[in-house]
Amino acid sequence: MARIEKTFDDRDWFMLECDDPNCEQRFDDSQWYADEDDLLTDAKDDGWQIPYKDEHPELERDMHYCPAHRLPECTTCTNIMIDPAGWKDGQCPECIKEKIPHERS
């Protein structure tokens, strides 16, 4: 389960857990968040990667990855590589199709 949720004092409280198999790392394990948006923003600021279902229709739900298990990103458009098939030299198929050049650093 990526998002752990419990009800306390009539409010929903949240914590994030990494979706990578066999990873038990959580974001800020010492504190529950009453505001989900604040939690997700803080997690992103701390290096977590959060692919959302509405941005990636192939996902069944939102996915959360800790900095130790980040997914690769397209070097040109920075889209997250959910499915690495068709990716070449760090570019996604859409950037390759559009012939968008990318520079290696």
Rank of each mutant, 00 (worst) to 15 (best):
R3E: 15
I4W: 15
T7G: 05
R11F: 09
W13I: 06
W13K: 07
W13E: 09
E17W: 14
E17R: 15
C18G: 03
C18N: 01
D19S: 14
P21H: 14
E24R: 08
Q25V: 04
Q25M: 06
F27Q: 03
D28W: 09
Q31H: 13
W32H: 09
A34R: 10
D37H: 09
L39N: 06
L40T: 03
L40K: 10
T41M: 14
T41C: 02
D45T: 07
D45C: 02
D46F: 08
G47I: 04
W48Y: 06
Q49A: 11
P51H: 08
E58Y: 02
E60I: 00
R61T: 03
D62R: 05
M63W: 03
M63L: 13
Y65M: 04
P67G: 00
P67L: 06
A68Q: 09
H69L: 04
L71G: 01
E73V: 12
C74R: 01
T76M: 07
T76K: 13
T78M: 14
M81L: 01
I82Y: 00
I82A: 04
P84F: 06
P84K: 14
A85L: 11
G86Q: 03
W87G: 05
W87D: 13
K88W: 09
K88H: 08
K88P: 00
D89K: 13
G90K: 08
Q91D: 07
C92F: 05
C92L: 05
P93S: 10
P93N: 11
E94R: 12
K97E: 15
K97Y: 07
E98F: 13
I100Q: 15
I100H: 14
P101G: 12
P101S: 15
R104G: 02
S105A: 10
